[in-house]
């Protein structure tokens, strides 16, 4: 089972490596979005705005970046259906989209800090919260992508279905990251972080339970 998961992750990686344009396209997308933000906010950005803006940019990037995770599999649908269990497929997709979105997010964070500047805060804490939030974003959007692929307007459905579901995760992440950016310490955000983690766990468990039903068609 583990070898199957590793193989599927490797396959996704190889596809992205060979095609190049989807991944570089997303990187360009996030870079140009941040540049637009940089040009439009020429005044000083307060720490609270800084962190909220970053997460909103990441939300929109995630909608576009993870929409492909099942659209690109349409031709292989039948092949997977006969060869592997849906739980293995979704697990590999979740792991891959987490790695995918966090690398895009880290790249975005780098440009964001270079262009817009960095308030004084503890980077380790910010990154811990970053990975926690990205886990929720990537899992929820991967599940939504598996639903949206069956609908008539795939692109719009990602946003329509995804945003309301992602909001609890996003609100917790943004409030955490605002506290960190405003100079908070671990004690101030520990309970919120644990709640965020538990919401993530619920979403992961539900995705594993529900995906087999959305998959068979």
């Amino acid at each position: 089972m583990l070898s199957q998961i590793a193989l599927l992750i490797r396959k996704d990686f190889v596809i992205d490596w060979r095609l190049k344009h989807p991944f570089t396209g997303i990187l360009l997308y996030i870079a140009s979005t941040i540049y637009t933000v940089y040009l439009s906010f020429d005044a000083v950005v307060t720490p609270a705005v800084w962190s909220s803006l970053f997460w909103i940019i990441l939300l929109f990037i995630a909608t576009t970046a993870l929409a492909k995770s099942f659209i690109q599999e349409e031709r292989r649908h039948l092949y997977y259906y006969f060869t592997i269990k849906p739980n293995i497929l979704i697990l590999s997709k979740l792991i891959y989209s987490f790695i995918y979105l966090s690398s895009i997010g880290l790249f975005g964070l780098l440009i964001y800090i270079v262009l817009i500047g960095q308030p004084e805060f503890s980077l380790g804490l910010f990154l811990a919260n970053f990975f926690n939030g990205v886990l929720g974003l990537s899992v929820a959007f991967t599940m939504i992508a598996s639903l949206a692929v069956h609908t008539a307007q795939k692109g719009n459905m990602m946003a329509i279905l995804g945003f309301p579901v992602i909001l609890p995760i996003l609100l917790l992440t943004i409030s955490n990251s605002r506290r960190i950016v405003e100079g908070g310490v671990w004690e101030e955000i520990s309970s919120f972080s644990l709640i965020l983690t538990s919401v993530n766990v619920i979403i992961v468990v539900l995705t594993l339970i529900l995906f087999p039903y959305s998959w068979k068609s």
């Binding site: 639903l147 279905l161 309301p164 579901v165 979403i203 529900l210």
Partner: peptide, 8 residues
């Protein structure tokens, strides 16, 4: 979606 969204 109903089950997933309810959990959120």
């Amino acid at each position: 979606y109903n089950i997933f969204a309810f959990a959120a």
